[in-house]
Nucleic acid binder design. Structure first.
Lengths: 205, 205
DNA sequence: CGGAGTAACGAGCGATCGTTAAGTACCATG
DNA sequence: CATGGTACTTAACGATCGCTCGTTACTCCG
């Protein structure tokens, strides 16, 4: 998609920016075309219509996120804490470096027509399950002490997602530091207590 | 606003529902009028236009949230933990019982025209400051051990806000239980460690 | 040199958009 | 019983919407 004709890339870039800023429903294809520096009918050379463009952008954004998670998990070991770290890192990095994609992904589900909605929801559910399974296993292994695994999961996901709404690359906080903080916050949220050092006796009520 | 003519209340209710479901930009005033069971021009009897209606809905939603926070804080004592509890409880209750208002509040800032944006942002900033000041004081008092107060604050706010997107009243989880869990999660996020043995039993240790 | 395919363009279609103007039914008051 | 405000209505305006049409410029291949 990047090595394609320059017009195509410009259209996708412009559409992503407009959808992220104004929302799908408030964006006209003329807005997109103007931002991309092409005529409005150029859009119809590459896509069947506005909805088709949204679907393509959503698919691309979802693929990018999922493959990033997949890779992070592949490099992580068996330890649930390590896996949660990997997932949080992948998510935070994605939200911070691809803010437009993230914000569209997180807010334009409602703009999808019914025929595309099911697949989109199913894919998102797989992603949620990733978090859920890891946290559940951490709880079973006695590594995560949270009494509310489901709510801890939602909290971790919500706080990572919110990064896309406020973080500015190149600001005072580096991406690596950001990741470190959110990994730490996530482990705190699930109440991670490493097994090895036996000196901890305050836990387990 | 509730004791006004029935048409007015119906319009506001319909507009809230439509804005929350489809978004401001994707909602037409005809959609709103039809849902309210009035003609589209009835809207112009009460409001100057679509934007004016959004502003009224946003103002009402903001007032409801802020006054709820104010009341909760007034009933809380001086203890930062108690104050954070009060703020989280007020926020979670608001998000869970006024999902439409919440979701509009959380996503339609971008639909505000410049002249209304400044006041809206300023009011929201006051709300954020509430959380920030309480957490900062908790850290200074040595009650909150989090090394990242700003990020913990963002995490707490984000997880509370997300409630509006998934919680269903009347479901398996009661509102009181929901509040209890999120208060607990928030105290965990700021790494609350009570100085003296409080009678608290919902937090571990 | 002559198609074939690619990558667009400007003009315009019907539908829908936010908004306005002018009118109407219904009270309550004087 | 006339008058004035309240609470709407129907009809229509110009602008903009997503989308289609017919055309054009430019390559590459034989």
């Amino acid at each position: 998609m990047s090595t394609r004709p320059p017009g195509h890339a410009a259209i996708v870039r412009a559409a992503r920016a407009e959808f992220a800023e104004r929302g799908y429903g408030a964006t006209s294809i003329r807005d997109i075309a103007q931002r991309a520096g092409v005529s409005l009918s150029a859009l119809y050379y590459y896509y069947k219509g506005k909805q088709d463009l949204l679907v393509a952008i959503l698919d691309d954004a979802q693929d990018a996120y999922f493959s990033s998670c997949e890779q992070a998990l592949a490099e992580a070991g068996e330890d649930p804490a390590e896996q949660l770290e990997a997932l949080v890192e992948a998510t935070v990095r994605y939200r911070s470096t691809h803010a437009s994609k993230s914000n569209i992904l997180l807010s334009e589900e409602r703009s999808l027509e019914p025929e595309h909605l099911e697949r989109y929801r199913a894919d998102n559910a797989r992603s949620t399950r990733r978090f859920r399974d890891i946290i559940e296993r951490g709880v079973q292994d006695g590594l995560f002490l949270t009494p509310y695994p489901d709510d801890a999961r939602r909290a971790v996901i919500a706080m990572c997602n919110a990064v896309a709404q406020w973080y500015e690359p190149g600001g005072a906080l580096s991406e690596d530091d950001l990741v470190e903080r959110y990994v730490s916050l996530a482990l705190t949220a699930v109440e991670y207590r490493p097994r090895a050092p036996r000196r901890a006796s305050r836990t387990q009520a």
